[in-house]
């Protein structure tokens, strides 16, 4: 049987694509955290550097991400369908001892994430949700160069409760998805033995929590006008 159609093969694809995306999420968070000003020029400078990268790199990077996501989503849906038909009839009494809310709802947290991403890209990358604050159009002149005013774009965005809610939902989905996802990755790759499993599970939850708080801190602070 072909690797990509084999039971464990499919798992591995999920795991690898998933975790690569999780890594992006971490890097992305670091990038976003420039808003706290540790990088001279703040998030605007960061965005500027990103956009200043040679086009091929940007395109390459985005297509890789897109591909990862597409594969991950495709296999995620495929696996979920296969698995739900693995037990066609449910038990009269639903009782479980080890399955968790997040392990059982990977597909749903995943779908939410997908929706969030689409929205998020329209919002901050294509900037079509609220064009009036589009960073790429309203440039600011900082230490001698024009930069996209990402800061204003974000702060404007997160003054809005609905927006805050949308991102909050997305981040909670991300948390749930990764709380299971990361440790699941180690198990799937076989990097586990009797002792490591419970540690990895804890670490995985912590990382997911870190992302949740890290990411949400920005919109919250902007909303609360603490970050200016």
């Amino acid at each position: 049987m072909h690797f990509f159609s084999s039971s464990i093969g499919k798992k591995i694809v999920m795991a690898v694509t998933g975790v690569s995306m999780a890594m992006f999420a971490c890097i992305h968070l670091i990038g976003n955290s420039t808003i706290f000003g540790w990088l001279n020029g703040g998030v605007n400078a960061y965005a500027h550097h990103l956009h200043a990268l040679p086009l091929p790199i940007i395109i390459g990077f985005r297509s890789v991400l897109g591909l990862l996501l597409a594969i991950h989503v495709w296999y995620g849906i495929k696996l979920t369908l296969e698995n739900s038909s693995g037990r066609p009839q449910q038990y009269a009494v639903k009782a479980t001892k080890k399955t968790t809310f997040s392990s059982e709802n990977m597909i749903w947290t995943g779908v939410i994430l997908l929706a969030f991403l689409i929205y998020h890209l329209l919002h901050f990358t294509l900037q079509t949700i609220s064009p009036e604050t589009a960073a790429l159009k309203n440039l600011v002149f900082v230490n001698g160069i024009d930069m996209p005013d990402v800061f204003s774009m974000m702060s404007a965005a997160f003054k809005n409760v609905a927006m805050l809610a949308i991102y909050g939902l997305g981040m909670v989905a991300l948390f749930l998805h990764l709380a299971h996802g990361i440790q699941s990755f180690f198990q799937t790759m076989g990097w586990n033995n009797g002792k490591t499993l419970c540690i990895i599970t804890k670490v995985s939850t912590l990382v997911a929590l870190g992302l949740l708080f890290g990411y949400m801190s920005i919109p919250m602070l902007l909303f609360a006008n603490i970050l200016k």
Partner: peptide
């Protein structure tokens, strides 16, 4: 016709 694993670990409990 067995399903795939999504690391629920329910099997060990059972």
């Amino acid at each position: 016709g067995f399903g795939n694993c999504s690391n629920h670990y329910e099997c060990q409990a059972a």
